[in-house]
Computed example of a mutant assay.
Amino acid sequence: MDKQATILVTGINGQVGYELLRSLQGLGRVVGCDRAALDLDNPDAIRRVVREVKPTLIVNPAAYTAVDKAESDVEGATRLNVQAPAALAEEAKQLGAALVHYSTDYVFDGTKDSPYVETDAVNPQSVYGRTKLEGEQAIAASGCDHLILRTSWVYGRRGKNFLLTMLKLGAERPELKVVADQIGAPTWSRTIAATTAHVVAQGLAAQRGGDADWWREHSGIYNLTAGGATSWHGFTEAILGIAMGDKAPKVLPIPASDYPVPAKRPANSRLAGDRFAQTFGLRLPQWDEALRLCLAD
C-alpha cells in the first residue's frame, strides 16, 4: 500500500461531510466531493469518479435525509440511500478499497425497552428507514471491506437540523411545544467526524504496519451515538437553556400523536455503543457535554 492514502469523501456540504473534511486532515490525501463533483443520483457518474480518484478509502456521509419527504419521493430516497452506496461498495470492492458508510436508528421500529444492539432484528417503519437498511444490505452483499456506522439525531451548526430549528424558534416564540415520548441520543456531527477519523487512523496505521486484513477483520455494523439519552423535549430544553439562559421560552411536553408527520418515528432510538467501544477503544461523550461544546463553538 502507498504510504499516502487517498480518502474520497462524499457529501462535503452536509453536516457530517463538512466536518469530515476537517477531521480527516493528516491521514492522507483527502478528496472531497460535493454534488457538482459527484452526482450521487447517477450510478455511472459515481463509478467514473471513483475510478478516476482510485481511493484507498471511501467515506460516504451523503444520504437522502428528508425523512417526511421520502414518504412521497421513494425513487429519490432509493437512488441516494440504496443505489449510491451500492455503486460505491461495488467500486470499492473492485479497487480493494474500504468503505465507511453511515446509517440510522430508523432501521428499527423503536418498540424495544432497552438500547438497540447491532444484532437486534430490524423493522423500519418509514421509507427513509427502509432505504437506509437496503443500503446497508447492498454494501454487505458487495463483499467490500466496510464499516457501517449507525447514528441518531444528528445535529450541527450548519445545514438543516433540529438544533438550528429550535434556536430559531426559541428566538421568535414565547412558548414551544415539543414531542416528549420519543427517546434517543442527540449526536453532534463533529463528534461523528472526529470519531470516524480516529477509527480511520487505526485502520491506515495497521495497513502501513503490514496488516492487510485489518479492514476485513473489522468489517460490519457498529452503533455510533453520543452517550446517554433524552427526549426531543429534553433536548430542546437543554439547547435553549444553554443558548438563552433566563431568556429561554417555556418548552411544553407533548405526545408524538399531537404532532402528526408523514413518516413514523421510533419511540426508542437508543443505540448501545458497547461493540464500538470494545472494538476500537473509543466511546463518544455524553450528549449534553457535546451539545455544550457545539454551542460554545
Rank of each mutant, 00 (worst) to 15 (best):
R130H: 10
V117E: 07
L282E: 06
T104F: 11
P55R: 01
H146T: 12
V30F: 04
K3Q: 15
S189V: 06
R29H: 15
V9M: 08
G26A: 11
Y64E: 02
L147E: 04
T10W: 05
T104C: 11
L99T: 05
G203A: 12
A185C: 13
A272K: 04
L88P: 00
G273P: 00
R265N: 01
A84K: 01
L176W: 02
I183G: 07
V100R: 06
E172M: 15
S269Q: 08
Y18M: 06
S126A: 12
G228H: 13
A205E: 15
K132Y: 14
R22K: 14
T119G: 01
G26V: 11
A238E: 13
W214G: 08
A98Y: 00
L169M: 09
C33K: 03
T279R: 15
L21G: 12
K250P: 05
R48Q: 13
D44Q: 11
P253F: 04
G234W: 09
G184T: 08
W214C: 10
P260Q: 04
I7S: 08
D120E: 09
E237R: 15
D297Y: 08
P260Y: 04
L147V: 09
V179P: 01
V16D: 01
I7E: 02
R130W: 05
R35L: 14
G210V: 11
D109M: 10
L95Q: 05
G273D: 02
L271I: 10
T6F: 05
I58M: 12
V82S: 08
R173H: 09
H233V: 07
A92Y: 06
I242T: 12
H233A: 06
I192C: 03
P43L: 06
Y102V: 09
D297A: 14
K247M: 10
A272S: 11
A45T: 09
P174D: 15
L271T: 06
I254F: 05
H198S: 12
